[in-house]
């Protein structure tokens, strides 16, 4: 299996991964996402980002516990996650909130927006240092910096839980998956092996 995975070009992951926001936007513009396409597009993109985040968090446990090696795709998955979050944020800013004065008010006053925005801001340095030059230049601190993704993941999961109305199971499943994948990394005595 790992042999097959190794022959899979990373470019294919980027190629396929770049498509969904475009497809969703096209669907939203042509009635494929229902009669209130702005919210639908925003939610689809947010969920896509969370799903990609979960895939990214699963890479290390998959390698350790199932022997499946997806390490070569990790950077692509991380950058695609950032790309989905960015699309989600742009839809929120440009199509949903619209009113400039309210954007900052929402970020400051609405905890779920604050949490989501915090996750996005924390992702910026990670995306910006996702190049070989930064990896070499930052050395061991690159690895430490990129552990921030654990914080991003928890904030992302919380963001979804906090915005839902009523006790809904889906956001809790996402948060549960994120916390579960993080917990797999916290086995005592293995801290040195953390990635």
């Amino acid at each position: 299996m790992n042999g097959v995975l190794r022959r899979l070009p990373v470019g294919l992951v980027y190629g396929i991964g770049l498509l969904p926001p475009g497809v969703l936007f096209w669907l939203a513009a042509t009635g494929g996402l229902g009669v209130e396409p702005i919210k639908a597009l925003e939610h689809e993109l947010g969920q896509l980002a969370l799903q990609m985040l979960i895939v990214g968090l699963a890479i290390t446990p998959l390698r350790r516990f199932a022997g499946i090696n997806l390490l070569q795709f990790r950077r692509a998955i991380g950058l695609l996650t950032f790309y989905y979050v960015l699309c989600h944020l742009l839809v929120w800013l440009v199509l949903d909130v619209q009113i400039v004065g309210q954007i900052w008010a929402d970020i400051v006053k609405r905890p779920y927006v604050t949490v989501g925005m915090g996750a996005f801001v924390l992702m910026i340095p990670l995306a910006a240092t996702s190049n070989n030059w930064s990896v070499r230049g930052l050395g061991p601190s690159w690895r430490r910096l990129h552990r921030v993704v654990y914080v991003v993941a928890v904030l992302g999961g919380l963001h979804f839980v906090m915005l839902s109305k009523g006790l809904q199971i889906e956001p809790l499943l996402y948060l549960g998956a994120i916390l579960g994948l993080l917990a797999l990394r916290l086995r005592p005595g293995q801290r040195k092996a953390l990635v």
Binding site: E36, I38, I99, Q102, D106, R110, Y112, M162, L163
Partner: peptide, 8 residues
């Protein structure tokens, strides 16, 4: 959790 000043 959100403003009620506007609607869509």
């Amino acid at each position: 959790r959100w403003s009620q000043a506007h609607e869509r």
